[in-house]
Design a binder for these strands. Structure first.
Lengths: 234, 234
DNA sequence: TTTGCAAAAATTGTCGACAAAATAACATCG
DNA sequence: CGATGTTATTTTGTCGACAATTTTTGCAAA
């Protein structure tokens, strides 16, 4: 079902998605149609279709006669996303404990072994852990065998997270500790202990969220006054 | 977000979304561009943009040189969605317990009172409970004050559910019981008991999911998926 | 210098036309 | 009669051009 003859709009959409996630198209950047069209060597028609698709995906925002811009992700929004991830990936871990195959568990162990080697090799930077972390979470999500869940998590929710990681050049929070937590989760999966797997996954993501929230300045745990001013005034 | 001058593509996108959810555009129906363009009285350009946006929203599926079709939702997928709803709305209930205002709790009570009157009045059919149920869940989600959560739940996830409800003409499962469960949830919110609110909400949705899954086992007379008649009004 | 308004430029929205591909129809052959 | 290759039609993909709107620019006045 791969694109046998990928259309121009599809190709451009994919390229732009990559450009946005990688930061080559900065957050809030205006998408100038004639310019981009010339740059990609295509007409404005397919480009507009690609932009509309990205709009549906939530990666760009479009106002009627003012053009489209790359969405901006505030740290607050990142924290919100981590809340959602906590709920969703916790569920994924629980489902995975029931659905995962023994072979997949073995593969997960091998993956974590590889991560351990990578961390030991590139001590300090641990950039590989970035993609490796994604890889781990990807596999858990896939193992849950819930198509809609996969679609939401991998299709929509992860883009902002990847954008943030790449663009902020944020190093992994204590990759050694993350690795240990990953191992515990896999152990729970191997034991078919869905409850424990969910708990550990939630704690794992909640830890990352709190680390993120710490950058916000204040603790965000109990929001006493929600401050309804979203300040998205236009 | 005041649509100062809604563009054609936006308007058509909205109309098509409505048509898909309401079932006027059946599941699996082919989106014939010249036909639809004539029907809407516009050119193919904006129509294609609208379709691309719907594609990003996950309401239509597009294959390179074969055209776009309305997505088909199997009962299995519905069950998957209810799993996701359970996790997400459970979280929403927990967050809402912390974030909701006293005034909002009062409004919720009033809403449920109205539902009770409606059920008593239109005993049996209880069609109002359909939208009312959505209304209740809407408010809980909003009360969680998590923008991303709202976006995912109300933006993407609910469309298939509404499609299913509308098209299958499914009556609410025991509206009286649903109402009671709703009341208990609001009570938990009023007590600021997030844990209990989450538990009750999860149980509430899990019940609906099980009722849904029961249909999966036993094939009943009403065929849930209508025959894909390619003919649309011209 | 700053403010306000008007013209100009650029950009977005929309359309019709042409090229490429897929589907349908049809005639031919086994 | 059915299968198959070819043609014809429909449908999708792409492009350039024109209209509508917004933003910028320029200029004059307070």
């Amino acid at each position: 079902m791969a694109a046998s003859q990928p259309t121009l709009a599809d190709r451009i959409c994919e390229e732009m998605k990559q450009a946005i996630v990688s930061g080559r198209l900065a957050q809030g950047a205006k998408l100038n149609e004639p310019l981009l069209a010339r740059e990609f060597g295509i007409s404005r028609g397919p480009l507009r279709e690609a932009i509309r698709r990205l709009e549906g995906l939530g990666l760009v925002r479009h106002v009627p006669h003012a053009g489209a811009r790359v969405v901006r992700h505030s740290l607050e929004e990142l924290v919100e996303i981590y809340h959602v991830r906590e709920a969703l990936e916790g569920m994924a871990a629980r489902l995975a404990a029931s659905a995962i195959s023994a072979a997949a568990v073995t593969e997960l162990h091998a993956l974590l072994d590889a991560h351990e080697r990578d961390i030991a090799a590139s001590d300090g930077q641990a950039y590989v852990q970035q993609e490796g972390d994604f890889d781990f979470h990807y596999r858990i999500i896939q193992a849950a065998r819930n198509h809609k869940l996969t679609q939401m998590l991998l299709g929509d929710l992860y883009h902002p997270v990847r954008m943030y990681r790449v663009q902020a050049s944020q190093r992994a929070h204590r990759p050694q500790r993350a690795l240990t937590e990953h191992r515990r989760i896999v152990d729970a999966l191997a034991d078919r202990d869905g409850e424990l797997a969910e708990l550990l996954m939630r704690r794992h993501i909640a830890g990352a969220r709190k680390s993120l929230a710490a950058q916000l300045g204040g603790d965000e745990a109990p929001s006493p006054i929600p401050a309804p001013s979203t300040s998205t005034r236009s």
